[in-house]
Write a protein that binds this DNA or RNA. Structure first.
Lengths: 149, 149
DNA sequence: GTATTTGCAAAAGCTTTGCTGCAAC
DNA sequence: GTTGCAGCAAAGCTTTTGCAAATAC
């Protein structure tokens, strides 16, 4: 499993104090393994504090994105235009979304790391966020996919 | 410059007949160098046929996406949640968006091609669409960026 | 007491859809 | 005369915003 950063300690290291609601949101994000959309995050966080509002969720996500502690994904817009969020990992990784079954596979690769170094060096570009997503058919669905799209 | 496919001949090769409006839209997309959002595409296409409706634009884009003739981009949501479209190129490429000046640099790399082969082989994943976007600071803006975010 | 956050509701932005009439083959 | 497309308007989904009340320091 990919090593995810610890949000609370990073926030503390930056001297950022959290309100109770934001702490509940951060803890919910930290403790969720997969890819969270706003509606799911709100629902889960409300189990800790039923008063949390959608606007607070968006505002907290904005903060965490700005601090580069979470990443925003589209997952190929498989389920509409909403975004998904995940805790940053030590190594960047890419997401493979199956258009048929909706499964998402994560994948780290030294080639990806090399590509990032090339981007920085050849384009003299200072990467803050990088997002590599692919859509297609996972192995299982490709096998079932004889003749039919 | 990256070699873009020819939409009309690909469509013809697939036996797809276009209405006059769809042809106008396809030609507009083909002739536009950069990254088109729906509003810009509509505006440009209306110079050919002022009756074109937004719904027709969306329906035509949907068709071209399904046929894998155009790609959809987010460009790091620099200007809201809208999508951008571009004609498929012979080689996939990645997009570097500068958060400060909004410039978009495209970049092909044999390392990216290698990465795609690894994805297919190591994950047994059949890639239909791949999208690699990065956000950060371009060289010019990074240099101006002493001390300020 | 000042600054920041919350709650609520409304608005905004972009995309999709229903349906009627129209055009193509 | 079936089938698919266009036109229009409304609805849909997600995200953002304005502002008054509440909270934190």
């Amino acid at each position: 499993m990919l090593q995810r950063i610890d949000l609370l300690s990073k926030l503390e290291a930056q001297g950022i104090r959290l309100t109770a609601q934001r702490r509940a949101l951060v803890e919910t994000i930290q403790q969720t393994a997969g890819h969270l959309d706003v509606a799911s995050l709100l629902e889960k966080a409300r189990k800790r504090d039923s008063k949390i509002d959608r606007a607070t969720v968006y505002r907290t996500i904005e903060l965490l994105k700005k601090l580069e502690l979470i990443d925003e994904l589209d997952l190929m817009h498989l389920n509409g235009e909403k975004h998904y969020y995940e805790v940053r990992t030590q190594k960047d990784h890419l997401h493979l979304t199956c258009f048929r079954c909706g499964s998402v596979v994560e994948f780290t690769s030294s080639t990806f790391e090399r590509l990032k170094r090339e981007i920085a060096k050849e384009n003299l570009f200072n990467i803050q966020v990088i997002r590599l997503e692919a859509g297609g058919l996972c192995q299982h669905c490709a096998e079932k996919n004889e003749g039919k799209n």
